[in-house]
Every structure is written in structure tokens, then in C-alpha cells.
Design a protein around this nucleic acid. Structure first.
Lengths: 211, 211, 211, 211
DNA sequence: AATGAATGAGGTTTCATTCAT
DNA sequence: GATGAATGAAACCTCATTCAT
């Protein structure tokens, strides 16, 4: 009854099949998000049946965790390797940053696995974020900026907002800090930059806006 | 068992009840995420039944969208108001940044609504992110940094990573850009800072690491 | 706060408003079927609120029953009136058939209310159908019929009605046909029978009843 | 309390279980109508759980459509087979009519599935009906018919089918009648016509087709 | 007389997960 | 080692109906 043609794909050992299944899971999770695909979908995409995934990974959560760990490990290796032969802080920083983007560039799906999923309201979220980015952008445009980089203001605004968001996320887990401290931290990075900080400068408000 | 206070709350007009329901939805979504709570849960938390939410907001998606829009509107207003009387770029920037953190500080739940949800694998995600943050942190620690700000290196690392993530997100929608261009952008911000950029400086690699 | 313009439509007495509401219900039920519309839909189409319908008709089932009875009453009157001045059985039959199709022709929605979906109101539907069958039956009983087949008159009446109903269903999709043509068709079948038609005969009215 | 027989029925293959489930669905739909039963009800009657029905049939609508198609196919086969060895139009007609009623006689529930409520599956219902109408139409086209009435054959076919359907509806409430009696009744109307019946003629089969 | 507010109950559908073969 | 069969649980959504004003 069994089809002979398919036999060549069957009965692989665990060491052969498991990475294959994990790669498929990363891809499908990356494309459609955790809640956007079912175990059935992933199993079908991998060409095996659901019980195989349960046998190898235990549960959907564990499978997703395995995907995250898998991608994170690869990214970490890429970043670690990138700076191994650099001593100068500036060159080291750039090497790492470049390695990061090179990694992402070839693996958009894997990157998506590391970012949280949007869902049906992605549009709304993007709009909300866009509002803040626009505000930042208009502010940048009002400043004197080198001519050649004017087209780069949009991604720059995204980066500024992203830095603030990450600080806010960190702050959620460290509520003992004051808003003023957080704001100063953000200023230290985005105003002075690492070069300024490396030179020993510290940003401080001349006069704190009233609350 | 029935709370007398809630009895007096019955039969409110839509103008009174709808914002109340929206506030509850923001809170519950913020606490548990979109997929982490059901309409039933939200309705119960608001002290009404599901059909009220469907009557006023249409669907779970639309409710979530309304929450996002609600929070985004408030945040935007806070940011817009913050810089209204500032002309100096530095002071304006700081005013905005401070307003942002002051907004978040009082409304952690609302902030969570604007961030995507983690789910059962939040821990794993945090660990993955932590790997990259640690890498960045060790690099910062190896640099000469002003003594007083050494405790600030951890949030600084988060901010750096957050800026990169936002750039990567933006890049997903603009795949025509090269990894090198993206990396240079990141450097412009994090190395020179807005002060440097405002002074007309442009960051460029002295020598590009080989791919 | 109340809009003066709408006041002219308000506060109608029950005698004025109830038939209006019933007509709307017949139309909406006819268009979309019992399960295809909600009380909310019907109320909106009638320009009143749901509680009005509940106050006047009790429940959705009772409303549907009222619609059926309303249409059936009109149809019965049309058929009864049609044969009032005819003695010749052939002419009488044609008059009734013609009246039936003329009735349907002007009120497709009402016809649909008599044909659609059974359910909790099946009894009411059967009763409405029985009215027409009884009318046909009494006409048959008045004719000379072979003794042995007298018991067969009831199902025969059902068949006659069923043939007409099927023609009416077909007519709904071919509205370019006139009521007269439809009536002639019905006569061709039920008066001559296939034997007659097969022998080359064609039924035609000697004199068309005036509309 | 658990029935031992059903225990032995567990873990059937799809080939065995699916027809069994379909039969149950036809029965329950026939008894209670589309809106009169839930998927839960049908699943319970079949001795399985809802997800099995969704796995095999997709949705409630698709299940109902499958039921209609199932019954229609059987009916069509019965009617087609019935006339295969008849040349005489009269005998052929009777054979078909008899086959129709014989079919209905053994499967009242299946008949109800073809007659009850329209809805999202109206298309499927119309198609099923069209099959029978087409069969009748082709038979009519093979007979000698007066030239002028040839265009009327389509509605004539509808009427013939409608008369049979009405007789079948009546029969559902009078199950003491035999299929043969019902077929003779149908012939009395459609072959002799009311003119013939009025003249005292009675249609009777010269020889009853063997069952 | 009329309505906006509110709900109980039920329906379809999906999905992570397990069992028997 | 691998799978088709099967399910428990829960989610979203709708709607007939009633209550308080």
C-alpha cells in the first residue's frame, strides 16, 4: 500500500529530520506568526504529521521556543565572529552593526521570529507608530542637517523611536527609575552619540521642563 | 455577593459607558495581550456582557484597533504639547523625550498595548534579546566611559539594540537598501549623535569589513 | 433635543403604524427569508425600534405567522373573487388560475413568504397552503368525476396546486412572461393533459377575463 | 450506560465512517431542517464529535450541500434506470413517475432534504431540482408536440415536477398509500388532464412494472 | 408611546493535543 | 518510527428578547 517513491523520504533518523523540521517551523512562524499558523500547517509544510512534531518538540510553545533559540544562536554567532579581530571601538561597533544587518538581510523570516507578531491590527499599530515617527521626522527636518543625508531622515527617525521604545521596555522591568533619568539616558545616546560618550562627555539638561 | 457599587452603575448612557469599556479593554489587553484574553474576560472586567462590546466596537479586532488608536492619540497629544514652546533643537528634543517617558511612566498598560505581545514564549524571546544586549554591553564596558554613567550602560545597550531593531523593521519594508547603507545609518546615529549630525558631520567607514 | 422634522412621523396611532410595520416585515422576510434577517433588520427597515415590533406582534415567530396570514388572506380573496361570476368549469378554472398568477405577479415578495423555509412556523405555512388546496378541492368536488376516483380528489388538488407553485417558482426567474401566458401554460397541462398535448391539441382561452 | 456496540465502532477508517456520518446528517437534517439542528446534534446522533464533521465536510453549509448532492445523485440514478427499457411514451412516463415515487417511498427523510428551507445552499438546491427538470424536459422533447408550444416545454417540465413534488409532500402525511397508487394519481392528472377526468375517463396502467 | 441599554443562550468554528494501530 | 482518527475546550460572534427611562 505504501508508495515506493515516498519511501526515500521516510524513516530518516532523528538527527536528519529534526533540523529540517525546525527550519520549516522557523519559516512558517516567520511568515505567519505564532497565532497565525497551526501545528497542522507547520507539519504539512514540513511534509510530516503532527505527532512527529509533538514527539520531537513536545508542544507548540516549546517548538516556538526552540525556533527562537535556534535563530538567536545563529545571530549571536554572527555578531561574535564579526568583531573578533577588531580593537578600535569605532571599527568594532561598525563591524557588529554591519554583521547584524547582513544577517537580517539574508534571513527576513528568521528576523520576524525574533520580533513579536502583529496580527490583524498590524496596520493600526503601524499607523500609531507612524504618528510618533512623523513627529520625530518633522523635528529632524527643522534642524540643520548635512545635505547628503536628508533622504536618510526617515530611517533615522525610526531608529530614534526604536531606541526610545527599547528604553521604555527596559523601564517596565525597572520601575524604580524616574522618567527624567530615562530621558537623560536617551539624550546621552541620541544627542552625544557613542563618540561623545567615549570622549567622556555627559549630557545634562540646562533646565528641566516643568512637569 | 453582588457589589452595591456596581448596581448603581447600571444603565449608563453610551457616552458614559463606552469610554469606560475602552479603558478596561486597554488595561486588560495591556496586561494579557491580544490572544491572552477573551472578549468574555474583557467584558467581565468591565462589568458588562460580551454583546455590549460587540454593539459598541464591532469585533475583537476593531476593539483592539480602537485601543491602539486611543492610546496613540493620547501619546501624540502629549508629545505635541511638550515641544510647543521650544525653538532650540536640543531643548526641543529633550522636551519630547521627557514627555514620552512621563507618559509611559504613568501608563504602563497603555504602553504595552502599543508594543506587540509576547505570549507564552516571552521568556525565550527576552533571553534571545538578552544575548544581543549582553554582547553590546560587554563592548561598551570595554570602552572608556565616564565613571558616573557606568550604571547606565545596561539601558544604553538596550537603546542601541532597539535602534537597530527599528532600523531592521524599517528595512523589511525597504529591501532595496543594502546592508552597508543600513549599517552606516545606524552608525550615524549612535556614533555621532544628533549633535554631531546637526553640526554637519557625516559618519563613513574608513575601511569596509570584508563580507 | 428631539428633531422637529421627525416628529411628523412619530406618535402614530397603532391602527396607522401596525399595517406599515407588517408590510415592511413581509417585504424583508420575502427578500431574505426567516433566518436571513433579524428583528433589528426589520425594525430598521420599518424605521422603528425593536420593542415596537415586540409590543405589536409578540415575537419573531408570531410576526412571521402574521405575515403569512396577511398574504394568504389577500390571495384567498383574490381567488374567491375571480370565480364569482363563472359557471362553466373550464372558464372558472382559468379565471382562478389567472387570478392566482395575477396576484403573484404584483407581489413576488409576498409569494416568497408563502414558499420559503419551514421551521417553527411550518404549521402556519401548511395551514396557508391548505386554504388554497381546499378551494381547489371544492371546485373539483362540484364536477362530475368517476366514482372510483372521488377519494383521489384531495391529492389531485395538491398536485394541481403544486404544478402552479412550480410554475410560479420558474416565473420568478423569468419575469418577462405575462400572467396570461403563465395561466395558459398551466391550463395546457392540467386541462388537456399530456395525452391531449401529444395529440396536437393546444389549449387557448376563448375569452380572456378582464383584469 | 455505554453501549458496547458503539465501543466496537471506534477508530473506523474514513471510508467507513464518512458515509455513516453522511447518512446520519441526511436523517437529522430531514427530520429537523437546516436551522432546526446544530452540528452538535448531528455529531451526537452519529456517535462522534463535532470536529470529525468539520474535518470531513468543512462546514455546516458544505455538509448540507453534501447531503443534497448525495440524495440527488441517488434519485437521478433511480429515475434514469427506470425508463431504460421502455419505448412507448406512456409506459415510459409511468415508469419514471413510478420510479420517482418508489424512491421517495423508501426515503422520506432524503426527500425532505430536497424540499426544505432555502438559504446559503439555495444554489445547490436549484441545481438538484434542475437535474430532474432536465430529465423530464428531454423526455418531452422526444415526443411529438405541436410546433407552437415547443417553447413552452421548459415551464411545462417545471409544472410536471411541481405536481409530483406536491403529491410527494401530501404523501409524507399519508404514508399508508402505496407508491403505485401515488404514481397512478400523478398519471391521472398529467396524462388525461382534467378534461379527460371530467369526461369520466380513468387512467390505469395496463401492466405494472415489476419492482 | 417609544427607546436605548443590556443580556442569556446558543451556534459555528478552530486547534492543541492524544490514542490506537 | 510514523500516522490517521478522534476529541475537549474554548473562542468569536449573533440574536431574540426584556428592562428602565
Amino acid at each position: 500500500m505504501a508508495n515506493v517513491d515516498t519511501v526515500t523520504q521516510r524513516r530518516l533518523s532523528r538527527e536528519e529530520r529534526e533540523p529540517q523540521m525546525l527550519d520549516t517551523a522557523v519559516r512558517v512562524f516567520g511568515e505567519r506568526g505564532y497565532h497565525g499558523c497551526s501545528m497542522e500547517d507547520i507539519a504539512a509544510a514540513a511534509g510530516v504529521t503532527k505527532p512527529m512534531f509533538y514527539a520531537y518538540f513536545g508542544s507548540k510553545d516549546e517548538l516556538y521556543a526552540a525556533c527562537i533559540a535556534h535563530v538567536a544562536r545563529q545571530l549571536e554567532q554572527a555578531l561574535t565572529a564579526a568583531g573578533s579581530d577588531e580593537d578600535d571601538p569605532e571599527r568594532l561597533t561598525f563591524a557588529r552593526v554591519l554583521a547584524f544587518f547582513r544577517f537580517i538581510g539574508g534571513r527576513r523570516d528568521q528576523w520576524r521570529v525574533l520580533r513579536r507578531e502583529a496580527g490583524p491590527f498590524a496596520e493600526e499599530l503601524a499607523r500609531a507608530r507612524g504618528t510618533i515617527v512623523d513627529l520625530t521626522l518633522r523635528q529632524l527636518e527643522a534642524s540643520p542637517v548635512p545635505a547628503g543625508s536628508r533622504a536618510d531622515l526617515v530611517p533615522l527617525a525610526h531608529a530614534l523611536v526604536g531606541a526610545g521604545e527599547a528604553l521604555a521596555d527596559w523601564w517596565v522591568d525597572h520601575p524604580e527609575e524616574s522618567a527624567e533619568t530615562m530621558a537623560v539616558r536617551q539624550m546621552n545616546l541620541i544627542w552625544l552619540g557613542l563618540e561623545g560618550l567615549g570622549a567622556g562627555r555627559v549630557w545634562a539638561p540646562q533646565q528641566l521642563p516643568a512637569e
